Computed example of a mutant assay.
Amino acid sequence: MINVSEQHAPRSLIVTLYGAYGRFAPGPMPVSELIRLLAAVGVDAPSVRSSVSRLKRRGLLVPARTAAGAAGYALSPEARQLLDDGDLRVYATEPPSEDDGWVLAVFSVPESERQKRHVLRSRLAGLGFGTAAPGVWIAPARLYREARHSLERLGLDPYVDLFRGGHLGFAPTAEAVERWWDLAAIAKEHEAFLDRHAAVLRDWERREDTPAEEAYRDYLLALDSWRHLPYVDPGLPAALLPADWPGVRSAAVFRALHERLRDAGAVFAGMDQTPGATA
């Protein structure tokens, strides 16, 4: 059985499972089915139950009975919104353009509420924003909607003004981007993904068959690794990035695994009619 590493924590895998398949189920996912599907990627039943409890406390999963009366869990409206917003990043296929512009988040938090300042910084960083100046954060404009949803959900919108526009100087935008983001650290994340999953893709490319359980396992692990990357890397235009940017290769590997394995994996997950299979 596969050992679940730090990159594949049980709680993260459960969220990934719901994002890939569970949210398209006609009703709540039974606990027994969660245990079966997580066992396929090396997670034991006690870890599933404790992780589900944590996700329930965070308001992401809600207990519900299946049509047959079995205990199960459904996504909360908040969790569905998070996954829907995330789809635009995780499954993006259109390359970003310099013409898209930028979104700026400018915030001011009173000293008496400085804890919210920390939460704001953490949330903007988690969304992929870079730091243009103290209290001024920047991201590609296509992240505006998700940023707005996230700030509203956390009750942080009263402290933030959002602007959209272009970079007019004085430094060339490519040089400014190197100040706003740690591109070397982002590149290492892409290289780590390639180290874990490029060989998996090569193995599948040598095969003609696609067994459902193997496809499910390799797809879920790849998606669990990949879905965090578009939040580390905000998706900058190629013209603003170093030559031979590893993000191009990692995106190609994930897309190829998605196209090869997702639908076969859905059969093992018991959801072979899952909508959005060609996302």
Rank of each mutant, 00 (worst) to 15 (best):
R260L: 06
R54A: 05
M271Y: 14
S150H: 05
Q115G: 14
E98S: 08
P158M: 07
A25D: 14
L13P: 03
F24Y: 14
E111Y: 14
D209R: 10
S32D: 08
K188P: 01
G155H: 03
G247D: 10
T278W: 15
A251C: 05
M29L: 13
P234F: 01
S47N: 15
A239Y: 13
V106F: 01
R207V: 07
G166L: 08
R65F: 12
E152S: 15
P246A: 09
A277S: 11
V119W: 13
L60S: 09
F254S: 01
A269L: 05
G165W: 05
E113C: 10
H8F: 15
S32M: 00
F129A: 06
L151F: 09
W245M: 04
E259K: 01
R255K: 03
P26K: 09
S150A: 11
V31D: 06
R23W: 15
P237N: 11
G126I: 03
H228I: 04
G135R: 01
D224K: 01
S97F: 08
Y219M: 06
W180M: 08
L168A: 12
E6G: 11
Y91T: 04
P246W: 05
L37M: 03
I138W: 02
Y73H: 07
Y91C: 05
V62S: 13
G22I: 06
E191Q: 14
R49D: 09
R142C: 03
A74G: 12
D209N: 08
V119A: 15
F193R: 10
E111C: 07
A251N: 03
R11Y: 03
R142V: 00
L75C: 04
R148A: 14
D195S: 11
D233P: 08
L162T: 02
A174S: 15
A70S: 08
R142N: 02
L38A: 04
D272A: 07
L88E: 10
R179T: 10
W226A: 09
T210K: 10
G86Q: 05
L75K: 09
G130N: 06
D224Q: 07
T210E: 03
S53D: 11
G22R: 05
L162D: 03
A147K: 00
Q273I: 00
